[in-house]
């Protein structure tokens, strides 16, 4: 076609259409191939396959794993117990620092507010499924060297290098545990608020990870804040960067914002019911209930 630029083939098609009959219900035609009809083997000899496809389901088939009579594979080998309980272990789907940086660059995640699991799931580019025993986000090291954002981050699993990468830029990172009831609320906030049930009270971590979430070196949310500050300095020395002073940062208020150990969502207390339709929040007034949620 003479002339350059976008959309030329479209113009050609539309110009052609002007001289063609009006497109009506009687003019349409699909593009997909006809479904292949199964030619059942009929005839005197009965054919080569088994009559009709449904017969394979109906006919008496041997049980799964059956090896024709000899000892089947799955009973030959002894059971290995090293993976026992694998289906009960906690899982943390990975999310890289590179993805985080890219999403911040493209405006999908706003670094002006604290970033937690809720914000990551709201991007619709990262998903967790509490029913699959996903307990949160595992922030990985990929993209560590190009990470430049200054953020307040809350994740569920990470490594020292990642903590260093975040703190090097003047940000803060916290490791926080959320129980499955809270995760159910957090991973899909719209459905949760639409349900009209109170925001759950976050439970403490189970025994086998209580130590991790109380460890200042891993920036656990249950750790002593003074110990965490010390650990930040130590990590900066270990990795060899200058630790920026968070207290002198203009975004100080945002960077030190933390959730209460009983809190799922920033600025919303457990026990509150959100009314999406009327855009109000219902807070329990009964003292017993309030004590429960605040304890």
């Amino acid at each position: 076609m003479a002339g350059a630029g976008p959309g030329r083939s479209v113009d050609y098609a539309l110009t052609l259409l002007r001289r063609l009959p009006r497109i009506t219900l009687g003019n349409l035609k699909g593009n997909k191939e006809q479904k292949k009809k199964h030619n059942y083997s009929r005839g005197q000899d009965g054919g080569s396959d088994r009559g009709y496809p449904e017969q394979a389901k109906k006919g008496s088939q041997p049980p799964l794993g059956f090896a024709g009579g000899s000892n089947p594979y799955y009973t030959r080998h002894p059971v290995e117990w090293y993976y026992r309980g694998h289906e009960l272990r906690r899982q943390y789907p990975p999310y890289s620092l590179f993805s985080l940086q890219r999403n911040i660059d493209m405006g999908i995640i706003d670094p002006a507010y604290p970033i937690d699991l809720v914000q990551l799931c709201n991007t619709k580019l990262y998903h967790i499924d509490p029913l699959q025993r996903h307990f949160g986000v595992n922030l990985t090291e990929e993209g560590m060297h190009m990470f430049k954002a200054k953020i307040n981050l809350e994740v569920q699993w990470t490594t020292e290098s990642v903590i260093a990468a975040v703190e090097r830029n003047g940000g803060t990172i916290t490791l926080a545990y959320f129980d499955p009831a809270c995760l159910n609320a957090m991973h899909d906030t719209r459905s949760f608020f639409a349900r009209g049930v109170p925001i759950p009270r976050r439970a403490l971590p189970p025994e086998n990870c209580l130590e991790l979430y109380s460890n200042p070196k891993m920036r656990g949310y249950l750790a002593d804040p003074a110990a965490v500050s010390l650990a930040r300095v130590e990590l900066a020395q270990k990795f060899g960067y200058n630790l920026p002073d968070v207290t002198k940062d203009p975004d100080y208020e945002m960077l030190i914002k933390r959730k209460d150990p009983r809190q799922c969502f920033y600025d919303l207390e457990p026990g509150w019911v959100v009314n999406l339709k009327d855009r109000t929040i219902l807070k329990p007034a009964d003292e017993v209930i309030r004590q429960y949620y605040r304890s």
């Binding site: 959309g7 083939s9 479209v10 113009d11 098609a13 539309l14 259409l17 497109i23 219900l25 003019n27 349409l28 035609k29 699909g30 593009n31 997909k32």
Partner: peptide
């Protein structure tokens, strides 16, 4: 000025 995909229109109808 979308490319007039008759097959897509057919699928919709």
């Amino acid at each position: 000025a979308e490319f007039p995909r008759i097959d897509v229109i057919h699928e919709n109808v």
